[in-house]
C-alpha cells in the first residue's frame, strides 16, 4: 500500500494547491467587484449632478446651462466611467453587471437627458458606446453599455423629462412641453413592446407603471394649459391661436 499512500499524498497536495488557486481567484474576483461597485457609485452621484444641472435650465439661459451640463457629463465619462473601465479591464462585463449596472443606468439617464435638451432627439446606444470606445486602452475590448442598462436608463429618463416639462410650462415654453410630451409618449409606446423581452421583465413592468404616471402628469399639465388658453382666447376677443399668456417672460407686461 505504499503506492496507494503515495497516490493519496499526491492527491492531497494537489487538492491543497487547487484550493489555494481557487482562493486566489475568489479573492481577486471579490476585490474587483468591490472596486467596480465603488466606481459605479461615483458614476451615479456625478450623473445625478448633471441631471440637476440640466434642471437649472430656463428660457433665457439655455445655452449656458447645457454647456455646463455637457462639460460635467464629459467629466463623468473621463473621470468616473474611465475608472470603471479600468477596474473592469480584462474581466467579463456581464459577470459583474450587477455591480455597475446602477451607475451605468444613471449615466444613460443623464446623457440622454442632455441630448434631448440640446437637440430634441434620442441619444442612440451606438453613439453612446462609440463615445466610450476611446476610454479603454486598445488592447482590451472597450466597455459596451448593454441594451438592458440602456433601456432601463431610458425608462428613468421619462421621470426627469416629466419634471422638465412641468418647469417648461411655468416658463411659458408650451411648445417645448408639448414636444417633451410627444417624445415621452413615443418612448413609452416603444418600451411597451419591449417589456416581455427584457431579461428581467418584472423590474421593467414596475418602471413602466411609473413611466405611465409621468406621461399622464405631463398630459394633465398640457390639458390645464389648453383649457385655460381656450377660455382666454375668446375673452381676449382674438381668434389668434397663439398663446402668449403663459410664461413669466411671455410678453404680458407685469
Amino acid at each position: 500500500s505504499a503506492a496507494k499512500k503515495t497516490r493519496t499524498m499526491t492527491t492531497q497536495s494537489s487538492l491543497k494547491d487547487a484550493f489555494s488557486s481557487y482562493a486566489d481567484d475568489l479573492n481577486h474576483l471579490n476585490d474587483k467587484r468591490e472596486k467596480v461597485v465603488k466606481a459605479s457609485r461615483d458614476i451615479t452621484a456625478n450623473s445625478k449632478k448633471v441631471i440637476f444641472q440640466v434642471h437649472r435650465i430656463s428660457k433665457s439661459n439655455k445655452e449656458e446651462v447645457l454647456e455646463k451640463a455637457h462639460k460635467d457629463l464629459a467629466a463623468v465619462v473621463d473621470q468616473y466611467v474611465a475608472r470603471l473601465v479600468k477596474e473592469l479591464r480584462g474581466s467579463d462585463f456581464w459577470k459583474l453587471r450587477r455591480a455597475y449596472s446602477p451607475g451605468i443606468q444613471e449615466y444613460v439617464e443623464a446623457a440622454t437627458l442632455c441630448r434631448f435638451c440640446k437637440s430634441g432627439t434620442l441619444l442612440n446606444l451606438e453613439e453612446m458606446n462609440a463615445s466610450l470606445s476611446s476610454l479603454s486602452d486598445p488592447s482590451h475590448k472597450p466597455l459596451q453599455i448593454n441594451i438592458l442598462d440602456y433601456i432601463l436608463g431610458l425608462a428613468d429618463l421619462t421621470g426627469e423629462l416629466m419634471r422638465l416639462a412641468i418647469g417648461r410650462i411655468s416658463d411659458g415654453e408650451l411648445e417645448y412641453a408639448q414636444k417633451i410630451c410627444t417624445f415621452v409618449r413615443e418612448i413609452h409606446r416603444e418600451l411597451t413592446l419591449l417589456v416581455p423581452r427584457m431579461d428581467e421583465p418584472y423590474d421593467m413592468k414596475t418602471k413602466m407603471e411609473t413611466m405611465l404616471q409621468s406621461v399622464m402628469k405631463i398630459e394633465n399639465a398640457c390639458f390645464g394649459v389648453h383649457v385655460r388658453k381656450s377660455e382666454y382666447n375668446p375673452l381676449l376677443g382674438s381668434g389668434d391661436p397663439s398663446y402668449p399668456l403663459m410664461g413669466v417672460a411671455g410678453g404680458i407686461d407685469l
Binding site: 432627439t121 442612440n124 446606444l125 441594451i147 413615443e186 416603444e190 419591449l194 423581452r197 427584457m198
Partner: peptide, 12 residues
Amino acid sequence: LEKQFEDFRAQL
C-alpha cells in the same frame, strides 16, 4: 427613434 427601437426589438 422608431428605427432604434425597431432594432432593440430585434435584438431582444
